[in-house]
Design a protein around this nucleic acid. Structure first.
Lengths: 336, 336
DNA sequence: GTGAAAGCGCTAACAG
DNA sequence: CTGTTAGCGCTTTCAC
């Protein structure tokens, strides 16, 4: 574990010269730069980020706050964040809230240990105290996915995406439309479910289509729960069932499809199913869905934070990212 | 952002006293400890890990090397690692190889920046050069999941798990058994697929059951690929098809089930399907599988690394973790 | 019990 | 172009 001082001594140079040379700073002759580079290479010198960070105040690391690492959106966005950050030589420090469990109370302490230069928050909600803590952090902050109050945010328009999905069903001629939604079973972001539900409501109202409360079930944003909920729905309503189901996430939509098939019904002949997200398994299910690019959102967030780090005057700005309706075989016109 | 020096000055004490008090070290009077604690609390003092790390040589962070954040096993193990680490106040810095893409060449440089005190490797393979680099790292190392040569490893017995799964099919009376396996489509760990395939081969040989090469397909360890592969298999073999399929991962097993149903066949009546892993969606598919606890493996790895950090003489030791055959509705005796 | 001083490995003025 | 001198914020002997 050789140090700067070490190789400076060996070469009979000063630490500053070696430091400058190794970082490609101007003011060192071509020749010495060569010598230094070689020496560094030879001894396998690798600078200590922490030491450098202490003196510059930059850690070359940014934190990513995730509610859980067990969900498609978070891990995919995380992947995008990492990709963009790695390209700039930054490390990512992961803060996993584990479904908002006890570790929660401590998270700000860890964040403030000055280990990271910025923070990316993946759709997590905070209480007033936590917001106050954020205010004192004083580092670039940005949210991805679910809205987080008082923070610039990158993500799709959750109301609109649900409207588009609902509209697709309406345009196919459906008027008996159920909803698989509800809040996240693990208590993750609540804004997303609410907004998507709003989109559904607005669109149906706009079309003058009746909203049947008994066709609304709670899928918990997870496949197994949604499957169970839809199974119960079908059981309960008998022949008086919806001809289409809007599922507020693809995971739930896949659960719905499994339940429908298990009930001896066919998709889309008996019931059309549409999802939201663009889960990697969606295509195999023939699922019609609105595809969003979580990885790109993560990358964009990372770039935004990086930009703020470069130029302190640069204010972070949120962004509404696109999604695309992808029609597959899970939706069709209702049977007559 | 108050510092130790700051609060020492305010109190008219020395930095050392404040440092000792805040870390609960002996040699400070009860009274001053109180005073200091309060002052620290009041100004919202939070120590800088990097500064502390510079002087102690410990960063209170450990690195986790993942091949990808888009697969069940990795994210689940990662979750376990984080949980155990967080409990000890350690941070996790994530090194995502992104399917062994270009970032790969740089990974050791980042690892060696002295940012982390130890490293947990989630089933990733390395070449000779990379191994040499690891050797120079000189920090606690442990692998989770797929075997990594020259490193203690925590994970299930991949040969055995495939034998058990195969045996389940044999015991049900199947003799026409196909395999959905092949290497990972993203070039991730190759040891796992190979070992599991070995288990399958050994078990069938032992039972004197014929291995039909034309019933072996490459599922790439991913649902969509497996679905496609099984669809082609069924198409190709017509009536001369297997009565059971061993899938080397649950993702592939779910793909197989989707393909079988799409072909108009029934699970398990026409074809039984068994998987390996214990994916959270498995139950909704009624999938019989061998369940392993990825989260526990991650936690165990973290604890092992932590133990080594505490006691330098403590040698890391790998461990074979358990799995359990969970029978559901995707397997039954073959039709007569 | 408490303080002074040195040092962790690096960067950043400021001289020369 | 290169070296000197201070720190960055904390821990850790070693005195008092």
């Amino acid at each position: 574990m050789s140090t700067l001082a070490q190789i400076a001594r060996d070469l009979g140079l000063s630490k500053s010269t070696v430091s400058r040379a190794l970082r490609g700073k101007p003011g060192v002759s071509e020749a010495t730069v060569q010598t230094i580079r070689e020496a560094a290479e030879r001894v396998g010198y690798i600078p200590s980020v922490t030491a450098a960070g202490l003196s510059t105040g930059r850690n070359e690391a940014i934190g990513v706050l995730v509610p859980s690492t067990n969900r498609w959106f978070y891990t995919t966005a995380l992947s995008g964040v990492d990709r963009a950050l790695a390209a700039s030589g930054y490390d990512v420090v992961l803060f996993d809230l584990h479904y908002a469990s006890g570790s929660r109370r401590m998270f700000h302490k860890k964040l403030l240990r000055r280990r990271v230069d910025g923070l990316i928050v993946l759709s997590t909600e905070f209480d007033e105290i936590e917001y106050a803590q954020f205010a004192t952090v004083g580092m670039p902050l940005i949210a991805v996915g679910g809205t987080v109050r008082r923070m610039p945010r990158i993500g799709i328009d959750d109301v609109e995406v649900a409207r588009i999905a609902t509209r697709h069903l309406l345009e196919l001629g459906h008027t008996r439309i159920g909803l698989v939604g509800g809040l996240d079973a693990d208590g993750l972001n609540q804004v997303v479910p609410i907004k998507r539900t709003d989109g559904w409501t607005l669109e149906l109202r706009g079309a003058g289509v009746c909203i049947r409360e008994d066709w609304m079930v709670e899928g918990g944003f997870r496949l197994p729960i949604a499957k169970q909920a839809v199974a119960e729905l079908l059981d309960r309503v008998g022949e008086d069932r919806p001809t289409a189901l809007l599922c507020l996430s693809d995971e739930m939509a896949m659960g719905a499809i499994l339940a429908i098939r298990d009930a001896g019904l066919r998709v889309p002949d008996d019931i059309s199913v549409i999802g939201i997200d663009g889960h990697p398994f969606a295509e195999a299910f023939g699922l019609t869905t609105c595809v969003q690019d979580a990885e790109a959102q993560g990358s964009l967030a990372a770039q935004t934070v990086l930009a703020q780090l470069q130029d302190t005057t640069h204010r972070a700005v949120g962004r509404i990212t696109p999604f695309e309706l992808t029609v597959r075989s899970s939706t069709s016109a209702p049977a007559v």
